[in-house]
């Protein structure tokens, strides 16, 4: 299953490292990544493969939520299909 991880917040060193470490520890493979600063906010989108993940999407979401809170960014994890459904005909 593919998921989209979205990280939004105030820019500071180490955000990418922390998020990708958490994903790697849970055997989540990052297939695509893009990052930019939008309106002063750090904005990163990652497309991830959860096929071999140690955690379910729900558990991963909860773990990243905690990580986000401690890092001062907001992290969303959503099934990729919701974006395909809403934005592709």
């Amino acid at each position: 299953m593919k998921a989209i991880v979205t990280v939004i917040g105030k820019d500071k060193p180490g955000i990418i490292a922390k998020v990708s470490t958490a994903l790697a520890q849970n055997e989540v493979n990052i297939e695509d990544i893009s990052q930019t600063i939008m309106q002063g906010n750090f904005t990163m989108l990652m497309q991830c493969d959860l096929t071999n993940a140690k955690l379910s999407l729900k558990e991963l979401k909860s773990e990243l939520l905690t990580l986000g809170e401690s890092t001062g960014v907001s992290i969303h994890v959503q099934h990729e299909e919701i974006f395909n459904a809403m934005h592709k005909i």
Partner: peptide, 12 residues
């Protein structure tokens, strides 16, 4: 990959 604008639009 999905379009950045579309992903952020859904989140917003």
């Amino acid at each position: 990959m999905l379009n950045r604008k579309e992903i952020l639009e859904t989140i917003d």
